[in-house]
Design a protein around this nucleic acid. Structure first.
Length: 576
RNA sequence: CGGGGCGUAGCGCAGCCUGGUAGCGCGUUCGGUUCGGGACCGAAAAGUCGGAGGUUCGAAUCCUCUCGCCCCGACCA
């Protein structure tokens, strides 16, 4: 490609709306332009990156035995009503009507569509297992799209769905996809980590997220410094405290705490540290009121609480409900004496004498002991894991905290969709059986953003070779005929050899070309200039911190091809 | 959905408080000089001031409503 023909409008200044590196550079370097909130057009450079990522995904999924299909993006409402998600999905599902008033959804994911396809034509165990995937635009009407391609409303996703005769085979495919994903992200040149993730109301513990490590990541993850355990903090298990049930030390004693409701305020008023307090929170879980207890210096992890309760809807109780249940204003609740279910974190059970609300305005109690005062409490892990916590899976490991960008998710679905939608087959005994399923997603456009978060400097993007829009950029630095001839010849030679080359043949000053080259981030840059011509050399430089090397014109193509080969073979850190 | 902020030329911004000819930088076009890290000089094109209504002799500026966008939070396969 000749730069003079390329639509790559670079900007000296970034639009005010861009906050994170990938967003700023994708716009400044002319990869994307915004059409609406969370909705972006891909320009030629952006399209090339997406195509490179897609190619890697297709190669690895094909190698893993999956077959590509293309499902519609517009789904009839009836399909979603059948699975129950027309109601359950909420406002994130963009609903539209056709001219006859019939309702449709813009697909945010395609379980219903794929199940409908498979149930029509797959009837025998002989046709299983089956793993089908598509690469397609998705639309999710996110409350808060942000950071360009990182969290858009419309985005490109690879979604795969597998169908099996039994759970064992589904588990095999889960591992198969896990391995394929590891290869895909490695080949994209990403430093990533597979972490255990929450499975929501679906159950089981078969879910992993693939997280690209980056400070700007939206997800918090922890990883053990000793063993292989790594998990999203929403899910991360915690080692049980050594003291599981502390013996009571003293009787409950009411103390007057006028006007101080929050834990911090009471702690300051009484001069006691936060970890001596018991935080009492009331939740409404599937319509029923429950109490959750964590230590004063901790927060309730609602994902864990939801999992412990086995409910789908969980929200903090209103002030009114708190008053009705505790007969005290918000801020003075205590679990003792309440007749509703109580769930307590192990750290609360380990407190011999805690301080908590007295269920009486302007009063707290000292000497709270869970075992004595709330004997019916269920002790379950309720708090979010943090840096430094002891690992739940090994003896002496501790957690280190990371930020991550979720670029992939593998999931064991079971029969969540296949059962209500009657996706069944006849097994070898002629018995009708529901197919267990798995689903596996990869955010294609998000990979592009994540790669930039992980690979950029103050001058611009530093693309990993495998997903760079071009592998090599030749900068023609000068107007002399021999500069044009040499750069043109090198361009033709490399292109003929199958290298993706961008030749900057624009009528611009060298400084402009260098700045644009750094901004766009092509991994290998060849400068053909007047001075070099006199010596019979060109300059070859890696975008990523490499020194400039002078290479004889005759050797230039070979040297560049070696650098390209080196860049294509370097895998990322597959440290699952 | 709650809190905060912003909509003025393609991009970045000033002007608004205190109403009176719409400005600056970058970019774009033309001419010239330059030519190895975003050149310089000269000329030019380009804006319904997000939209609607109101106040006023007069509104980018004041008031009301509305739409869009960004950030924080909540939420989230």
């Amino acid at each position: 490609m000749r730069y003079s023909q390329l639509l790559a409008p670079t900007l000296r200044e970034a639009p005010a709306e861009a906050q994170v590196a990938s967003h700023v550079y994708l716009i400044r370097a002319g990869f994307i332009r915004k059409l609406a909130a969370g909705v972006y057009s891909l320009l030629p450079l952006g399209m090339r990156v997406v195509q490179k990522i897609e190619r890697i995904v297709r190669e690895e999924l094909s190698r893993a035995g999956a077959q590509e299909v293309l499902l519609p993006m517009v789904h009839p409402a009836e399909l979603w009503q059948e699975s129950g998600r027309w109601q359950a999905y909420g406002p994130e599902l963009l609903r539209i009507k056709d001219r006859k008033g019939a309702e449709f959804a813009m697909s945010p994911t395609a379980e219903e569509a794929i199940v409908d396809l498979v149930r029509r034509d797959v009837k025998s165990f002989r046709q299983l297992p089956l793993c089908l995937y598509q690469i397609q635009d998705k639309f999710r009407d996110e409350m808060r799209p942000r950071a360009g391609l990182m969290r858009g409303r419309e985005f490109i996703m690879k979604d795969a769905y597998s169908f099996h005769t039994d759970d064992q085979d589904a588990a095999r495919e889960y591992q198969n996809m896990f391995d394929a994903y590891s290869r895909i992200f490695s080949r994209c040149g990403l430093e990533f980590r597979a972490v255990e993730a929450d499975t929501g109301a679906i159950g089981g513990n078969q879910s992993h997220e693939f997280q690209v490590l980056a400070a700007s990541g939206e997800d918090a993850i922890v990883a053990c410094d000793q063993c292989q355990y790594a998990a999203n903090v929403e899910k991360a298990e915690l080692r049980r405290p050594k003291v599981t049930t502390a013996a009571p030390v003293r009787a409950l004693e009411e103390v007057h705490t006028p006007g101080v409701g929050s834990i911090e305020a009471v702690a300051g008023f009484l001069g006691e540290p936060l970890d001596k307090f018991v935080k009492t929170l009331l939740f409404v879980a599937d319509g029923e009121c429950v109490v959750a207890l964590v230590r004063g210096d901790r927060d309730v992890n609602e994902v864990k609480l939801k999992a412990a309760l086995g409910v789908t809807m969980l929200e903090l109780a209103t002030d009114r409900m708190v008053t009705d249940v505790t007969h005290a204003p918000v801020g003075f609740a205590g679990a003792q004496g309440l007749s509703i279910p109580v769930y307590a974190d192990p750290e609360v059970a380990a407190l011999a004498e805690g301080i908590t609300g007295a269920n009486k305005g302007d009063h707290h109690v000292r000497g709270f002991n869970l075992g004595r005062d709330v004997p019916h409490a269920k002790v379950v892990d309720l708090r979010t894991a943090a840096e430094g916590d002891p690992c739940a899976r090994c003896e002496d490991g501790h957690y280190r905290a990371f930020r991550g960008i979720e670029v992939g998710h593998v999931f064991f679905l079971g029969t969540k969709y296949s059962a209500p939608m009657k996706c069944t087959f006849l097994d070898a005994q002629g018995k009708e059986t529901v197919m267990p399923m798995g689903c596996y997603g990869i955010g294609i456009t998000r990979i592009a953003a994540a790669a930039i978060e992980q690979n950029h400097d103050g001058d611009g993007i530093v693309w990993p070779m495998p997903i760079a829009p071009f592998q090599v950029e030749i900068v023609a630095a000068g107007k002399e005929p021999d500069v044009a001839e040499t750069s043109g010849a090198l361009y033709r030679e490399l292109t003929a050899a199958g290298v993706d080359v961008l030749l900057d043949d624009r009528d611009e000053r060298p400084g402009v070309k260098f700045k644009d080259a750094d901004l766009i981030g092509i991994p290998v840059r060849v400068t053909v200039g007047k001075k070099g011509m006199a010596e019979g050399i060109v300059e070859v430089k890696r975008r990523r911190g490499g020194d400039m090397e002078k290479v004889k014109i005759a050797d230039a193509a070979a040297r560049v091809r070696a650098l390209v080969a080196e860049g294509m073979s370097v895998g990322g850190g597959a440290r699952a």
